[in-house]
Each structure stands twice: as C-alpha cells, then as structure tokens.
Design a protein around this nucleic acid. Structure first.
Lengths: 214, 214
DNA sequence: GGGCGTCTCAGGGGCTTCCCCGACGGGAAG
DNA sequence: CTTCCCGTCGGGGAAGCCCCTGAGACGCCC
C-alpha cells in the first residue's frame, strides 16, 4: 500500500472525530471532516476520498442522506458506517443507501483500520453480529424490522397465528398445527386484523411479506 | 482459539478436497468430506461442524440444495461457498439459501483460513469483487433471475388479474378495476392458480411477494 | 371453413374467511 | 376479592373464494 488511504470523517461530535483521528491517523490519511449532512456532502464532493467514515445519526438528516447526496453528485465514494447504534433500521438503511460496511464504535483501532482498508479495496465489512443480520435480511428479502412496535400490540398467541397465516396456512391448518379449534384461530386472526388495522388476510400476507415475517 | 474450527468439505472433485485439506488442514480440523448433495447433508447432520466449505456445483443438486437440506434438518450450520464460479446467479442463490460467505478458489490459503474463522465467528466474508455485488443486489433489491419463465405461461389478461390479486384486491375489486364481471375474474384467477400450481390466493400473494411483483 | 386459444360470462355448490354475539377458566393487578 | 386480560371455544351468518360445467364472441392460422 504505497499511497495512504484518504479518509473523511463524518460525525456530529468533535470529540469522537478527534478520538478516531488519533487512533487511525497514523495508518490512514484523514483529509477532511464534517459534522452535519450538508457539510459532509460538500467536503466529500470536494475531496473525493477513498473512504468515508460515516456516523449514522447526524443533524440535518442521517447517514443515508449523506450517501444519497454524494451519489447524486456523481461520485462513487465508499462508505463505512461507524455508529453506536446496532438497530436493525439503521443498519438496513445505510446498507440500502449504499454503504459497504457497518461497524460499531466498540471496534478496536486496528480492526477499524483494517475495516477501512478493506472497504477501500471494495470489500464488505460488518461487525460479526451485524453480518449475519444483514445476510439474513438479504436472504429473506425483508425490509427492516425486528422489533416491530406494531407486533408488540399482539399477544404471543396472536403472533403465532399471524406467522402461520402469513405463511399461507388456512385457519383449519393453523388450528391443526397449534392443536386448537378453528374457532380459536378465527378469534386470534380477527384480533390480529383489528390490531394491525388490516381488513383481510390478503393484506395480512402483504403486511407480513413487507416486513420479512414470512 | 483453543478448540480448532471443525470443518466439512463438500466438493465433487476429490483432488480439490485433497488440495484444500492440505492447505488448511493445519489450521482447522477437517472432520468430514462429501462429494454430492445427499452425502453432504448426511455428513453435516451427523457431524454438526462449525463451518461447511461448500462447492456451488454438485451432482445431485447444487450448493443451495445442501443448505436447504441441512436447514430442514434443524441445524444452523454456517456455510462458506467456495467456488470457481463468480456468476451472479450462483452467488445470489447460495446467499439466498443462507450461506454466510462466498469466496472463489483463487483465494490464498491464509485468506481462506481467515475466512473460515470469520464465518465460524458469525462474520460474513466475500471476495472483494463479490462483496460489492452482493450489497448492490441487496440495496437495489433485485433478484437477478428477473425474467420469470413461469409468468410466460400466463396470458396477458391472467397476468393483469394476478397483479391485482397479489396487491390484495378482492375479486369484486379486480372486476371493477378491469370493468369485467366477477365471474370472469374468477375464471382468470382459477387459471392462474392452476398454471402456477398454487392452491389459493394466499399462496399467490406469497408467490408474487417472493418475486417482487407486488 | 374448421380448429384453436383467448376473453367474456353464468349457475351452482362447497369451503374459507370474517364478524357478530356469548362463554369459561386462569393469572395478574388493583 | 374483584377486575381485567388472555386463551380457549361455540353458534350463526354474510361475504369471499374456488371449482366444475357450459357457452358465445372474436381473432388467428392452416
């Protein structure tokens, strides 16, 4: 690696930027910094770095907004999301926007440097726990959601029934699987539809398909 | 890493297995081998290894068939696809099936060992060139196999009806939209179900959701 | 012209879905 | 102990779904 990797840091906390810089500054070249969405886009477009270390939560928008903005400017910069959050929504959002990696701030300095270089080389890097998650999402072609607040409205039994219905089982089949009566399944199904504000089981199937439950 | 990673090799060429084994045998523990789909499933289920090194092309099926089979047996084994192919279809297929990594056989021994350990730890590993590809596919939520031969069996009218049904419209609503009678919608719907070998409209919704027709 | 496929429509029947009621036992909360 | 939620179950009924059979109209191809 003759030329050092050129990196831009985007984080709304200057302390974080300083910390990261001191940790990785010897191994890569930090050519610019920004602390909000618009500033980040400006800096990145002006400097065209190899990799952008991007915090997910920013004033004036969020990580994906930066990625979109840079893409819109015609650059093909590689982004490595660096965040305290490991929430499903955040991870999925930046990956969908086009980030090539996602690591949490708990990462060690040498691992971060390695991750930056990998992303610069076109590789994909994820914190182990997130890797499986992302691939599951991909394999299951879901959108987001693990902790669906809407699912919390449902009792455990209702969620069981929902999952089976979403998989295409008829009431009768669900009843057989859960060894309860068809009437009970009807009751639960009715509750599920009411709570999720759906009008029939086709919408339920679509609802479930949309959030990967199938 | 006190205990060595337990690995099963699946490849239809014994020479390849021998080669891989000699390359990585010192670093990980190769506990079993197989050269076809059924044999692989048997060996994996019997040995429950940490990681399976899986060739994509196998007699008696392909890589995804092995993954499905093992999953069906209730195991949560981690698979690392190791293939000469870097074709989009192959990569997508094994990832969709649930593989946690995909590297080509051009990989160096030490990189392969590293990849195996990463996959064993739950990380995701891809050859640099493939990493971006997989993420692009994910971000753009394409499937690769876009051209559906199964759709060709359907007449234009049947496809129209299919799309509307998949979006959750009732027969009556579809009829209103297409300004035809409910009975005609029933006829088309029936044809669609028969041609696609589905038994009801919930399966139809799932079928459509699966190929992003919704 | 005759055959073929598509699109349209109808009657009738059986099953499924969804809602309206009401009911009972159990556990948690007050 | 009463109240409330949960899970279980039932009757009854309206609507939707799905199949079977049959049929007329149109266009295309041989």
């Amino acid at each position: 690696m003759s030329e050092p990797t050129r990196v831009v840091l985007v984080d709304d906390h200057s302390l974080v930027r300083a910390g990261v810089k001191s940790e990785i500054g010897d191994a890569v070249q930090v050519v610019g910094e920004a602390d909000d969405v618009d500033g980040a886009i400006d800096v990145i477009v002006a400097l065209d770095p190899d990799v952008v270390l991007l915090d997910v939560h920013l004033p004036g928008g969020n990580g994906p907004a930066v990625i979109e903005g840079v893409k819109a400017a015609g650059l093909e910069t590689r982004f490595l999301a660096l965040s305290v959050s490991d929430a499903a929504e955040d991870v999925i959002a930046v990956i969908r926007a086009g980030a090539r990696g996602y690591v949490t701030k708990a990462i060690a300095a040498d691992e971060l440097i390695d991750a930056i270089r990998r992303v610069a080389a076109g590789d994909a890097v994820f914190s182990p726990r997130l890797a499986g998650f992302v691939l599951d999402a991909f394999a299951g072609q879901m959108t987001v959601a693990d902790v669906d607040p809407e699912l919390d409205q449902l009792t455990n039994r209702e969620q069981e029934v929902l999952r089976l219905l979403a998989r295409g089982y008829t009431y009768k089949e669900v009843a057989a699987r859960l060894t309860i009566s068809v009437k009970t399944v009807e009751t639960h199904a009715s509750s599920v539809l009411r709570k999720l504000q759906l009008s029939n089981r086709n919408e339920l199937t679509r609802w479930a398909a949309h959030r990967r439950l199938i």
